[in-house]
């Protein structure tokens, strides 16, 4: 029996609350146990992907830079809400390599197609 698949849904901007950071911590923890989750950036969650983040002034790490390190932890499946991307005038060129924009039908399929959903 193969390991259960986990979809981690992250839907908040990176710095206003600790949810986005907690989602990353959960993803890294799962990856450390050889259960790398699929990540879905939904709604305001796509704002985590903005390039050019410099959080040194608010005393924390650039969220985008931590996201960029995910492939080294074995997490390489990133899906991004294309409607939210368009709403914030972001394009595929702004995304980390390997991140795939997906439409609503594809998001519904992701939600239904994983064994577990972890929401943040």
């Amino acid at each position: 029996m193969s390991a259960p698949s986990v979809l981690l849904v992250t839907r908040h901007a990176p710095y206003g609350a600790s949810l986005a950071r907690s989602a990353l911590d959960a993803a890294l923890a799962a990856a450390a146990f050889d259960r790398p989750p699929t990540l879905l950036f939904l709604g305001d969650g796509v704002l985590q992907l903005l390039p050019g983040q410099d959080a040194s002034g608010i005393g924390t790490r650039s969220h985008r830079r931590v996201l960029d390190s995910l492939p080294l932890y074995g997490i390489d499946t990133l899906y991004v809400d294309s409607q939210a991307l368009a709403g914030h005038d972001l394009t595929a060129a702004d995304l980390p390599p390997g991140a795939r924009p997906v439409d609503d039908a594809a998001i519904r399929a992701l939600l239904a197609g994983h064994d577990h959903i972890l929401g943040f």
Partner: peptide
């Protein structure tokens, strides 16, 4: 590059 120190697994990959 990543503003964090690597854990073992990413260090090996890097």
């Amino acid at each position: 590059q990543f503003e964090s120190s690597p854990a073992m697994r990413p260090l090996v990959k890097y």
